[in-house]
């Protein structure tokens, strides 16, 4: 098979065909700070930092996408929330901005152009596009309107809303949808090839599926319709098997899957409907030896690769800060060595 560019490789795989090798995505959002010898706060403060590190790391490891994403709490900052920076992990969202459900009666949707953190993210995407060209896909991220309230309200108050005040729930969804759609389309216009649609609350680990069907599912169908580019729905480590049939109807192209579920079963359930992205255990990766890394990657390749429709990645969409460079290097080398078809086997 002729050599493919990263973009061709990913699009072939997500079209449920076998590419020249299994594509892999390393979500190295935090490692760029290490790469440049900066703190995480310093790193994310400038688009040029992120672009430089993303390009360098892609050249070193040879993965098949550039990550044009900084941190999830940036969207929360747009709503007036706080991002809490730590030395050794992703910036986390601070206290909820809405202290009670009555606050939802007077919602104002933030404007993308008024949020400096989101503008930095758009600049990252523009610069990545300008430096990397068309051969390598650039991934952006948007939080689903349905899952953003976990930050806006706190999880407990949000569950009270979901179960107890459907009228205000839909008010919040309407506002969040306007924001999410504008943010997603701004990233696509800036040059993002596709977006990860983060929707952890859609996982059956989080809410019962009858509740999802009448709430988050409708929100996803409606929102994805308004996003002018391909999406990968990611449940951020949560279980996916119980919701695949619904996710497949939302209009998304692929799903990020949990390390707690079997790739063979996931592939079979998604066949022809959704690409499967995952499912290396990012948390365990922090302590993997070279041998364990190779074993885990080869096992994922053997289970996920047949017939295409598979992109190797981690289970969450972000590699933890503590994952050593050696593990990332071994992971990348193992995909390059064993990723050609029949992938992962001794006959590769």
């Amino acid at each position: 098979m002729p050599h493919m560019t990263p973009k061709e490789r990913i699009f072939t795989a997500l079209s449920h065909r076998e590419a020249d090798r299994v594509p892999f995505v390393l979500a190295l959002t935090l490692h760029g700070a290490k790469e440049l010898g900066l703190t995480i706060r310093q790193y994310f403060s400038s688009a040029a930092n992120v672009v430089e590190a993303q390009i360098r790391m892609q050249q070193r490891y040879g993965h098949d996408a550039l990550i044009g994403f900084s941190y999830a709490a940036a969207e929360y900052e747009a709503w007036g929330g706080e991002a809490i920076f730590v030395e050794d992990g992703p910036p986390n969202s601070g206290e909820p901005i809405f202290k009670n459900l009555e606050a939802l009666d007077h919602l104002e949707v933030p404007r993308i152009e008024a949020c400096p953190e989101l503008q930095t993210s758009l600049e990252i995407i523009r610069q990545l596009k300008s430096r990397a060209g068309n051969g390598i896909p650039i991934l952006g991220v948007v939080l689903s309107p349905f899952s953003l309230p976990v930050m806006q309200l706190g999880f407990d108050l949000y569950l009270d809303l979901l179960y107890g005040d459907r009228e205000r729930f839909w008010l919040l969804m309407a506002a969040n949808q306007v924001f999410a759609t504008a943010w997603a389309n701004a990233q696509l216009e800036a040059g993002a090839t596709a977006l990860a649609y983060y929707d952890p609350l859609a996982s059956p680990s989080m809410i019962p599926m009858d509740l999802y069907r009448e709430t988050g599912f409708k929100v996803a169908c409606d929102t994805l319709k308004q996003i002018s580019g391909p999406t990968i729905t990611n449940l951020a480590s949560g279980s996916t098997l119980g919701v695949i049939d619904l996710i497949a109807q939302t209009g998304t192209q692929a799903i990020g899957v949990s390390s707690l579920e079997d790739l063979v079963e996931l592939k079979s359930r998604c066949a022809g409907r959704l690409g499967v992205v995952g499912n290396l255990n990012g948390l365990a990766m922090v302590r993997w030896t070279a041998k364990e890394t190779e074993q885990a990657v080869r096992e994922a390749l053997v289970k996920g690769a047949p017939g295409g429709g598979f992109v190797l990645s981690d289970n969450h969409g972000e590699l933890p800060w503590g994952v050593p460079d050696e593990v990332i290097g071994t992971l990348a080398e193992t995909v390059r060595t064993w990723g050609q078809y029949p992938a992962g086997s001794d006959h590769a």
């Binding site: 569950l159 979901l162 179960y163 059956p204 680990s205 989080m206 019962p208 509740l211």
Partner: peptide
């Protein structure tokens, strides 16, 4: 065991 959701435990 994956048979209930976290929201159900909370409620």
């Amino acid at each position: 065991q994956g048979r209930l959701a976290l929201a159900q435990v909370y409620m």
